[in-house]
Simulated assay, not measured.
Amino acid sequence: MQDENSFKLANVSRLLSIMAQLRHPEHGCPWDVKQTMASLTRYTIEEAYEVADAIASGNAADIRDELGDLLFQVVFYAQLADEDGLFHFDDVANTLCEKLIRRHPHVFGDETGAVLSDEDLSEQWARIKAEEKKGKEGQEREPSLLDAVPRGLPALMFAQKLQKACAKVGFDWPDTLPVLAKVREEVDEIQQEVEAPSPNQEAIEEEIGDALFAMVNLARHCKVDADTALRKASHKFIDRFNGVENAAAQQQKTLSALSLNEMEALWQQVKAASKGKG
């Protein structure tokens, strides 16, 4: 076991050494050298989604590969912080260890062995996070319930977490039907803005945003993860569009050569066939 652990630690050290070499101002990679924390954030989000996509595919090799890419992002940030004298990779790991121990008293603390329900665990996690927030210095105002929701989350996830946080204190619709009515109301408001004599683009954007927020709320009330639902719908669209392309190819035609009505006919054909498989 000791040899195995040593091998694992050696791989971490090797990874950190490679990262340092990539950032070497003279002998490193020009792309890596010019990166900043701000420039990396979009790549981090992309890598997280690629991990999710690999997990959905169920391919272990792809999952391992994408997890490595995501880990590289963490190592990259730590290297940048190290260069600026802010903190080291070891500090990141240590902070995580301390946080995990602190947030799991039923595993590591005085409450070891306690049997907690999912609801109990969620409440415990939220309580400990709130206590951590209070302990941080430099608060210029009273902490808000929504401060714990990261602003940089993807939009669907951000909306869902905001709504879940509010629901914990009772700021929520009692059941699904009023939420469904709210969705219809928001869609009607979009239509009003679109059909206005002089459509206002900002107003249309705002109303579409309200409708999307309401749809996320509806998904939450239906116990559906909005991001997962949209991802599945997108993959379904890809499959059906590929079917349209194949159907056109069988007719020895390109999509650009077909009219919209002809493409719609192929779409309905593919859609019917896909439903028939079920």
Rank of each mutant, 00 (worst) to 15 (best):
N11R: 13
N11D: 07
V12L: 14
V12G: 00
S13E: 13
R14S: 09
L15G: 01
L15A: 14
L16D: 00
S17V: 02
S17R: 12
S17L: 06
M19F: 05
M19L: 05
A20E: 08
A20P: 01
Q21H: 10
L22P: 00
R23K: 08
H24E: 07
H24Q: 07
P25H: 04
P25E: 02
P25M: 05
E26D: 13
E26Q: 13
E26K: 11
H27R: 12
G28E: 00
G28A: 02
C29Q: 11
C29P: 02
C29D: 14
P30R: 12
P30N: 01
P30I: 01
D32E: 08
D32I: 07
D32Q: 10
V33R: 15
V33W: 07
V33P: 00
V33L: 12
V33T: 11
K34I: 11
K34P: 00
K34L: 10
Q35C: 03
M37K: 06
M37F: 07
A38H: 06
L40I: 10
T41W: 03
R42T: 10
R42D: 08
R42S: 12
R42L: 09
Y43N: 12
T44W: 06
T44D: 03
I45K: 09
E46C: 07
E47M: 04
A48R: 08
A48F: 05
E50V: 06
E50T: 04
E50K: 08
V51Y: 00
V51I: 06
A52P: 00
D53Q: 10
A54D: 02
A54F: 06
I55T: 03
A56P: 03
A56K: 01
S57Q: 11
S57W: 05
G58Q: 05
N59Y: 06
A60M: 14
R64I: 15
R64D: 12
D65F: 05
D65N: 13
E66F: 01
E66R: 11
E66A: 03
E66G: 00
G68W: 00
D69P: 00
D69I: 02
L71T: 11
F72H: 12
F72S: 04
Q73R: 10
V74M: 10
V74L: 13
V75F: 02
V75C: 05
F76W: 10
A78Y: 00
A78G: 03
Q79H: 12
Q79T: 10
Q79W: 07
Q79Y: 05
D82G: 02
E83V: 06
D84R: 14
D84T: 07
D84C: 09
G85L: 06
L86K: 11
L86E: 13
L86F: 10
F87C: 14
F87R: 02
H88P: 01
H88K: 14
D90E: 15
D90V: 07
D90M: 08
D90N: 10
V92A: 09
A93C: 07
A93V: 15
N94D: 14
N94C: 12
L96A: 14
C97T: 14
C97P: 02
C97S: 14
E98F: 14
I101A: 08
I101C: 04
I101S: 04
R102I: 06
P105H: 04
P105S: 09
H106A: 08
H106L: 02
H106R: 03
V107D: 03
V107C: 02
F108K: 09
G109L: 08
D110H: 08
D110F: 04
D110Q: 11
T112D: 08
G113Y: 04
G113A: 06
